[in-house]
Each structure stands twice: as structure tokens, then as C-alpha cells.
Design a protein around this nucleic acid. Structure first.
Length: 449
RNA sequence: GGCCCUAUCGUCUAACGGUUAGGACACCAGCUUUUCAAGCUGGGAACCCGGGUCCGAUUCCCGGUAGGGUCACCA
């Protein structure tokens, strides 16, 4: 039997995290078993469904690397004639009937399903047997009118016509399953296999929703998360193959994914861990790939900050950035906060802050002068390498107290109490700028005394 | 409230009757570093409660409690 799963979002909102994970699990299961996954849009609620949401969902799927197949007609709104055929069949057999609508103005007749009122049990691949007493469902409504079907009806018919073998969906659908099985048995369809996966929860353990902040997948893309990291994190939220491995590529996930290893209780979405995953994937990138990803963000942020764009400085900044960010947007945030101003502008150090230990301006001045001489002795070529600068400076710094030497050195270059180390700064801004800044600091100290 | 599902560190989880209950994130400390960040090392931190079954229960069963889901002419 070829496995066929389906991902059936209703395009009434943007692609969100929980929906993405459902899609991922369906994809993973189908790929693992050599089957396929269909995408179809459940837009029987035509008032709320929008094409822009369809696009958002498809773009999100593509970004995450989740592939799918489309059934011939993939919008339920375009299949009403099909649903009507089955509806008439049901009514003809006395298994459903038309009844007055509560919406008296419309003067429509809704279609109610004739509930056989039987106890029912279905097997859930993840949770085992689940039983319901269907009596309490009453003769529930399956269509607003003969030509206007409702969700439960259309789902059952589509799953049947598409040959869906496994229905993998959120556990919020458990109680829907009873209704759907009732309909499908009335229609004479075989039951698919069901697997209800746990919900993704907000920190307060309620179902994750908009009010909890960022839930749209696109938002994470915009903030600069990597698709691989996002998928990795999502996969491990509610699924675990056992063992201590945390990092899985999509092919590895496909290879290892089984329904048996899906968790049964809900999992809280934790942004910190997601960020950690992202940082791990950032670390694994080649310098080239990292540069391609970081530079556009860096440029936009730098320009917005009013910097003159200097590609050379930017490229030399890359290694520092790689250590300090978890997602691309951290670059924007750090630039906005002025963290890297000193790479683009000469700082204006305050005289009182230049000396470190004991406020000894004379000593600080002497140390800065020594640093200046040292830098002057380094060639332009060697200046590109912070390690060479460090070697040149280290002997003097060690002999005279690293703190006493390096603090004023760093502060003269950055104008900040906290910054990258002076050798790196010097290397990034270049020989000329470094010497200019030291000159300026020495001069300020002289004037101040 | 009815029905359904669930229950291991704060969080994500491993364990499939016998373990000093393991890992990761977060947190704390130490190292390294002039500072910040990163990195390295170490540390604290959990089997919801009560009954069974069993030589032995975190693990199986029942009950309680707690949390969640669902009760639309939405999906």
C-alpha cells in the first residue's frame, strides 16, 4: 500500500507554526515511507478564505523545503458539484435530510446527518484506541445547503477521492474524528488510519495563537531564521528518535521519522532553543555563505544608521558578527543599538574614561604612545591580521600590565566601555584610522591634564 | 459543565520493570579574556498524588488531582 497523506490548511490566515509542523510531519511520514503528500485548500468557508493566504502558505512550505503534490482540483470551493452528488446520495438513502435553517432570513434548508447514535471506537496510531458515544453529537449539520457543504463532509469526501491512507493532524481534531467516521461509513468509504499529534503550546500551556506573539512562519523568515534550523527545531518539538543527537538535516529527518516516536503530550514553543538551533546552523556555514547572508542585512542596517557603506570594513566585520548573532536580525538590532558605531566613525573618547587603573593619565598617555609606535611599525599587509597586531603589542602589554595598557588602547579605538578587543578593532578599521584615533586620544589626554 | 486527551528537571526530551533517572536549551560557578560576546570545564535542577499487580515500579492497571482540547449553519 502506498502511503498518501495530506496537508489541508484552510486559507483563512497566514501560515503559522502549528500548521507548519503538521505539514512537516505529514511530509516526513510520506517521504519516509516512499509515499506522497497532497496539499489542498479547505476553503468551504468562502467568506473567510483568501488567495493571499494560499500564497503565504505555499511560500512558507517552499521556504521550509516541504514538498507536496497537488490533486487535480485542490480547492474545495471548486468541488461543490462533487460534494452535492454525495449529499444527494445520502439524502436519497435516508442517511441525511434537509431541515430548516436557523437563519430564517436566508430561507435556506440545511442538510443534517442522520446520526445512528452508536458507540464508536477508532484506533489512533499515536494514542491507541479512543472511544466516543456519538449520541451527544445529535443530527449534526453537514451542509449549509445542498450546494454549500461544510468541513466534515468535504474532508471525508476529499480524503476518499484522493486515496488518503493516513490522516495526520493536530489533536484538536480528535473530537472531529467521530463525526467524520460516521459520515464516511454512511457513504461506504473505508476508514483511513488516524494519527493525532500533540499541540504546540504557548508558555502558559494554552494552544499557541496570535495573542502569544510571533506565530506566523513568514515572520521567522523575515527575522532571519534559517529554514534548516526552523525545520530542525519544529521536528524535535513533539517528536524524538531517541538518543542525544539534536541536529538533523531534512534527509536525516526523513530517514528517521516514524509515528511511534511522536510525543503524545503538548509541547511549549521555546524561542530560546530555536535561537540556539539557528546559531548552530550559522556556525556550520562556510564563510562565503555567511557573508552572503549577513551582508545585505548589515548594509541595510548600516545605511539606516547613517553610516557610509564601506564594503571592506563590512567584510572584515563578518567574523565578529558570526560570534555575536543567533539570527540575521540580531545584526540589525546590534547596529541600531550603536554596538558597531566605532567601526564606521571615529569615537570621541572622554578624557576621564581613557585611563583604566587608578585614573593615571600620564601612564595611560605613555601606553597609548607606545601602542601608536607599535602600530606604526606594522605593515599595511600585516595589519589585516589581528593576530599579528596582537603579537606585536603583547610583549609591551604584558610587561606594563595588560589592563593598564589594553584598556586605554581599546577605549581610544572604540570610545566604549564594552567592545570588541583592540587588536580586532584596529585590524578592521585599518592602519590609518587606528593611528588617527590613538593620536586623538593622546591629544585629548594632554589637553585634559 | 459533558465528552476526549495528557502528566520525567523551568522548557524540549531519553528510559520501553531492576539506571548514581541520561542529553539539550535556559540558569549558576570557574577557566580564558582589559571589557562585552563567544568558547571550554563544572554545578544545581525532574519521575503529580494515592492505591493496586509484581521479588521489584518513573515504567503496567485503577482512582484522584492538575493541565489541555472540543462541544458552530468555522476549519
Amino acid at each position: 500500500m502506498t502511503v498518501i497523506t495530506r496537508y489541508p490548511p484552510s486559507p483563512t490566515g497566514s501560515f503559522h507554526i502549528g500548521s507548519a509542523r503538521t505539514a512537516l510531519f505529514n511530509y516526513l511520514f510520506a517521504a519516509h515511507t516512499g509515499g506522497k503528500m497532497y496539499l489542498r485548500f479547505e476553503d468551504t468557508d468562502t467568506a473567510r478564505s483568501k488567495r493571499e493566504y494560499e500564497d503565504d502558505i505555499r511560500e512558507g512550505l517552499q521556504w521550509l523545503g516541504i514538498t507536496y503534490e497537488l490533486p487535480g482540483v485542490f480547492r474545495q470551493s471548486e468541488r461543490t458539484h462533487t460534494y452535492r452528488k454525495y449529499l444527494e446520495q445520502l439524502i436519497g438513502k435516508g442517511l441525511a435530510y434537509e431541515a430548516e435553517s436557523s437563519d430564517t432570513e436566508q430561507n435556506k434548508k440545511v442538510v443534517r446527518f442522520k446520526n445512528p447514535n452508536i458507540p464508536m471506537t477508532f484506533n489512533d496510531l499515536i494514542r491507541g484506541d479512543i472511544s466516543f458515544d456519538t449520541t451527544e453529537l445529535d443530527d449534526f449539520i453537514i451542509a449549509r445547503s445542498i450546494k454549500d457543504p461544510l468541513y466534515h463532509l468535504s474532508v471525508v469526501i476529499d480524503d476518499y477521492e484522493m486515496g488518503v491512507t493516513h490522516v495526520i493532524r493536530g489533536e484538536d481534531h480528535i473530537s472531529n474524528t467521530a463525526r467524520q467516521i460516521l459520515i464516511l461509513e454512511a457513504l461506504g468509504f473505508p476508514r483511513p488510519l488516524y494519527a493525532h499529534i500533540p499541540l504546540i503550546l504557548a508558555p502558559d500551556r494554552s494552544k499557541l495563537s496570535k495573542r502569544h506573539g510571533a506565530v506566523s512562519v513568514n515572520q521567522y523568515k523575515v527575522e532571519g531564521y534559517l529554514a534548516e534550523a526552523f525545520v530542525n527545531y519544529l521536528a524535535l518539538l513533539g517528536w524524538n528518535p531517541g538518543g542525544d543527537q539534536e541536529l538533523y538535516s531534512m534527509p536525516e529527518l526523513v530517514e528517521k521519522f516514524t509515528l511511534e516516536n511522536v510525543q503524545i503530550s503538548g509541547a511549549i514553543f521555546n524561542i530560546e532553543k530555536l535561537r540556539w538551533f539557528n546559531k548552530e546552523y550559522l556556525k556550520k556555514m562556510s564563510d562565503d555563505t555567511f557573508g552572503k547572508g549577513a551582508l545585505p542585512t548589515l548594509k541595510a542596517a548600516a545605511l539606516a544608521r547613517g553610516f557610509t557603506w564601506d564594503e571592506k570594513i563590512a567584510v572584515r566585520l563578518l567574523p565578529l558578527l558570526r560570534e555575536r548573532i543567533s539570527i540575521w536580525q540580531d545584526i540589525t538590532k546590534q547596529i541600531d543599538e550603536g554596538e558597531y558605531d566605532y567601526f564606521f566613525y571615529d569615537p570621541r573618547p572622554s578624557p576621564a574614561d581613557i585611563p583604566h587603573a587608578g585614573g593615571d593619565k600620564v601612564a595611560a598617555s605613555a601606553h597609548l604612545l607606545a601602542m601608536l609606535h607599535t602600530l606604526q611599525g606594522i605593515s599595511e599587509a600585516d595589519f589585516k591580521n589581528p593576530d599579528i597586531i596582537k603579537r606585536s603589542v603583547w610583549e609591551y602589554a604584558t610587561a606594563n600590565g595588560r589592563g593598564d595598557v589594553l584598556w586605554p588602547f581599546r577605549y581610544a579605538l572604540s570610545g566604549r566601555q564594552r567592545s570588541a578587543d583592540p587588536m580586532l578593532i584596529a585590524s578592521v578599521i585599518g592602519k590609518e584610522a587606528a593611528e588617527r584615533r590613538l593620536h586623538a586620544a593622546i591629544k585629548i589626554l594632554g589637553t585634559a591634564s
